[in-house]
Design a protein around this nucleic acid. Structure first.
Lengths: 130, 130
DNA sequence: TTCATTAGTTCGGAATTTATGAACTATTGC
DNA sequence: GCAATAGTTCATAAATTCCGAACTAATGAA
């Protein structure tokens, strides 16, 4: 097995970072890792496993996040420990990570709101249908 | 010819914005359009035409930027007038556009520096080779 | 040690996306 | 009308991404 690649943040073009975070599964994973304040983490993917994302795909996603300099992965025995490298990126591209994660959270919030509304609408329809 | 699509910013997921800006040609175009303060613009692409980017490809790039809600395109006679929709995006995702454009500029600056260095190195090599 | 289990990677081909030349549309000016 | 210009669309070639199957590497139990 090849060793994991962790590029110097200086060598990562912004496009690579944006590309890494332009996938819904990857932003979700990344926001999750950043969210738990760079501390513990067994693998942010257990709750994604349910969503039927095959592990080979997840492995690729983690690789892309790693090679965009976004996360650091360390083998801990049989499993992987992933931590965010936000401090390093902050140094090179100030504000980038926090605004993106923030935007992602805004989106999650508005999705949740929309879902609630559509439930209400469905309920209203159900009432009208009686 | 189909009419141009300009989605409501509310309907654009962050991923679409990040994806649109994860291409070197597109960030360059977009940074350029944002750069000229949402005012004039004939088409930010004249200087890219030199770089041998075919016009069908450029057309696609503009389409992707438009459909990510990043720019507004208006036909003005035979040509296109493109303006940034940064104010609308700022409202929904505060700071997102400015930090990304900023990061892009930081990268351009460091690339310019690296290029200068490598010129100096080449010059040094040339001297040593005499 | 050997076997089984768990976590993750790698490989290869299918599915999807992107790039681009050629043909087309729409507008302007002659 | 015709020619020129700016941009779009279409079809297909090229590049990416997805994902199942096979593999590796570490752990624990027998």
């Amino acid at each position: 097995m090849r060793p994991l690649i962790h590029p110097d943040v200086e060598d990562v073009p912004v496009e690579a970072i944006l590309h890494a975070l332009s996938d819904p599964v990857r932003v979700a994973i990344y926001a999750d890792i950043v969210g738990q304040d760079c501390s513990q983490s067994c693998s942010a993917f257990l709750h994604l496993r349910d969503k039927a994302i095959p592990k080979s795909t997840l492995s690729q996603h983690f690789k892309i996040l790693r090679e965009a300099g976004l996360i650091r992965g360390e083998r801990r025995g049989v499993e992987m420990h992933n931590t965010s490298r936000c401090a390093e990126i902050e140094q090179r591209y100030p504000g980038l990570i926090s605004t993106i994660v923030n935007a992602h959270n805004i989106q999650l919030a508005s999705e949740a709101k929309a879902a609630k509304k559509s439930v209400k609408k469905a309920a209203r329809r159900a009432v009208l249908a009686v």
